[in-house]
Amino acid sequence: MTLIAENLNKSFGDTLVFKDIFFTVDKGEILVIKGKSGQGKTTLLRCLNYLEVLDKGSISINGKYLCKDADGKVQYAEKEDLKAYRLDIGLVFQNYNLFPHMTAKENLLLAPKFLDNMTEEEMEKRAKELLAQLDISDKENSYPYQLSGGQQQRVAIARACMLNPSVLCFDEPTSALDEETRGQISKIIKGLANQGMAIIVVTHDSSLVEELEGNVLTMGK
């Protein structure tokens, strides 16, 4: 299994967000986490990406642990292991969170430049390939404000794919898109799964759940 999540528990103060969540996602699989607003779907995704800390539970990708239970308490990995874990998971935010002062291509190149794990040529080549694959090659020098919602999302997907993570998460990918663009995004997501990525999609959009034809985890009642 690529991603294994076991016994995940999370509260904010006295408010329980989710309890005893178990799931796995394998290479090429799509897991759709559905549920109404306020059921903790986004919080779960944030926990997988270490933007929130769990109260209990363990998460691992390809055997590399983000956290595990030890003596009833959650124990997070050391700094170096966290870095390695981060490279194996990507997140496309609901509102994309593109860097507004950078062009589409600069958004893609920022992380590889920092991590210094590719040559300049490799970075350029990968960025161009991804932009072409997502059909936005002509937008590489555009700033986010010059792009439509759907184009911004494609840039966000390309940015998350730059480091070739094993797992890619999507938070409400169709919430701000029209029906046609939604169809294109679901095709892109299925395409990424076909290339071997493990995909986790959080959504309350029942049409998208059907289109993605993945495993479904329902949160809440």
Binding site: L51, R86, L87, I89, N97, L98, L110
Partner: peptide, 9 residues
Amino acid sequence: EASTVLGLS
């Protein structure tokens, strides 16, 4: 948060 998930320091 976007910087964090991209692995930037």
